[in-house]
Amino acid sequence: MTKRVLLYLTLAAGAFVSVFPYLLVVLTAVKTQAQLSSTAPWLPPLPPTAANLTEMLAGDFPRYVLNTALMTLALTAGQLVFTTFAAYAFARLRFRGRDVLFWLYVATMMVPSAVTMIPLFLIMRELGLVNTWYGLLAPYVLGTPYGIFLMRQFFKGLPAGLEEAARIDGAGPLAILVRIMLPLCRPALGTLAIITVISSWNSFLWPLIITSGDETKVITVAIATLKSGIGVDYNLMMAGSLIALAPMVAVFIFFQKHIVRSVALTGLK
């Protein structure tokens, strides 16, 4: 009983530490400037106000949410399509230099993304893609080393006999991938989709560098611009953060079973 009590106390403490920042976001978003300066951050306001949320939704912030949603949708679709093709080629097709090329590509994961931002920006500038949707999406829509590595390892775990039987029946590589492999890879595809959605929705550094207009501005950049030269409006920043956080919470609520299942990817049942 003592061990069980200690276990639950530890879990409760960990849960509180994890949830507390989100609680502060909610409480600050429904406070006025006077309430924020006169009460402790963790105390609820009396009465709460929706003025901050209304002000954010009445301006251009909904456009930035839509821009972020479109960017996330495009990046997720591109990742799933191009990553799957590349991973299948590295896992199943035989060509000269396959393994060397794959491990060289995976080795780029050791390079911090901040190091490549300036070269990427210079490339986009020479191509005339600064402050455009093409420049925003191009570096990541065709796949990432982590996504290709994840899908390749899953493909390699599938029985080779399935492909051999399909080849005997006259199926080509594309038919094998689409009709046999992809239905078996739904757990891995779900994992890749969830990771891509979260990383794309929270992306900040690259959108900050490559975009400058409202047509392509995303919510992370929009929230950062609420900081003025004379101070920070924490109420509006937290209201914007609460709006930005809501879709991710919805994703977790609706797909939590798949998220938990995808943590430990398994092969065929």
Score class of each variant (00 low, 15 high):
residue 169 D to G: 06
residue 231 G to R: 14
residue 61 F to H: 08
residue 87 A to K: 08
residue 147 G to D: 04
residue 198 I to T: 07
residue 151 M to W: 05
residue 93 L to K: 04
residue 97 G to E: 04
residue 177 L to I: 09
residue 203 S to G: 11
residue 66 L to T: 13
residue 149 F to V: 01
residue 83 T to P: 02
residue 211 T to E: 08
residue 134 Y to T: 14
residue 21 P to L: 12
residue 104 L to R: 01
residue 162 L to V: 07
residue 202 N to T: 14
residue 189 L to V: 03
residue 62 P to G: 04
residue 13 A to T: 07
residue 180 I to E: 00
residue 44 P to Y: 09
residue 74 A to L: 13
residue 63 R to W: 06
residue 169 D to C: 13
residue 26 V to S: 08
residue 256 Q to T: 01
residue 177 L to G: 05
residue 268 L to N: 01
residue 11 L to Q: 12
residue 55 E to A: 07
residue 219 I to H: 05
residue 237 M to K: 03
residue 228 S to F: 15
residue 237 M to H: 05
residue 66 L to S: 13
residue 219 I to V: 15
residue 196 T to E: 06
residue 84 T to Y: 13
residue 15 A to K: 02
residue 241 S to N: 15
residue 229 G to K: 07
residue 5 V to N: 02
residue 114 A to E: 11
residue 72 T to E: 10
residue 144 T to D: 10
residue 238 M to Y: 14
residue 121 F to V: 03
residue 28 T to K: 03
residue 117 M to W: 09
residue 107 A to M: 12
residue 85 F to Q: 04
residue 223 I to M: 11
residue 118 I to P: 00
residue 28 T to C: 05
residue 12 A to E: 07
residue 76 T to P: 03
residue 43 L to E: 15
residue 180 I to D: 00
residue 25 V to T: 00
residue 164 E to Y: 04
residue 26 V to K: 04
residue 40 A to I: 09
residue 106 V to L: 15
residue 258 H to K: 06
residue 248 M to T: 08
residue 263 V to Q: 07
residue 61 F to W: 14
residue 5 V to A: 09
residue 92 R to G: 05
residue 185 C to Q: 01
residue 95 F to T: 01
residue 247 P to N: 05
residue 71 M to T: 03
residue 155 F to R: 00
residue 169 D to S: 09
residue 110 M to G: 08
residue 133 W to K: 02
residue 165 A to M: 05
residue 260 V to Q: 09
residue 4 R to S: 04
residue 181 M to G: 04
residue 21 P to K: 00
residue 225 T to S: 14
residue 93 L to V: 11
residue 148 I to T: 11
residue 100 V to K: 14
residue 79 Q to H: 10
residue 99 D to C: 05
residue 197 V to C: 11
residue 9 L to S: 10
residue 46 L to T: 14
residue 37 S to M: 13
residue 190 G to R: 01
residue 107 A to Y: 11
residue 77 A to W: 08
residue 203 S to I: 05
residue 205 L to A: 14
residue 23 L to P: 03
residue 53 L to A: 01
residue 158 L to I: 09
residue 179 R to N: 12
residue 258 H to F: 11
residue 91 A to H: 01
residue 50 A to K: 12
residue 34 A to K: 12
residue 192 L to F: 08
residue 189 L to T: 01
residue 13 A to D: 12
residue 137 L to A: 05
residue 136 L to Y: 03
residue 239 A to G: 12
residue 257 K to L: 04
residue 209 I to H: 01
residue 106 V to Y: 15
residue 129 L to P: 04
residue 156 K to M: 15
residue 267 G to A: 15
residue 110 M to P: 02
residue 30 V to G: 03
residue 192 L to D: 01
residue 112 P to A: 06
residue 101 L to G: 10
residue 76 T to I: 07
residue 107 A to I: 07
residue 71 M to G: 08
residue 86 A to E: 12
residue 135 G to W: 03
residue 60 D to C: 00
residue 198 I to C: 09
residue 28 T to G: 05
residue 249 V to D: 01
residue 22 Y to M: 15
residue 109 M to H: 09
residue 169 D to K: 09
residue 120 L to C: 09
residue 236 L to A: 11
residue 174 L to A: 11
residue 77 A to M: 14
residue 198 I to H: 06
residue 172 G to R: 06
residue 96 R to P: 00
residue 247 P to L: 06
residue 7 L to E: 00
residue 126 E to L: 09
residue 65 V to C: 10
residue 196 T to W: 10
residue 54 T to K: 10
residue 176 I to T: 08
residue 193 A to P: 01
residue 177 L to T: 04
residue 235 N to H: 12
residue 156 K to Q: 15
residue 82 F to R: 01
residue 42 W to H: 13
residue 172 G to W: 11
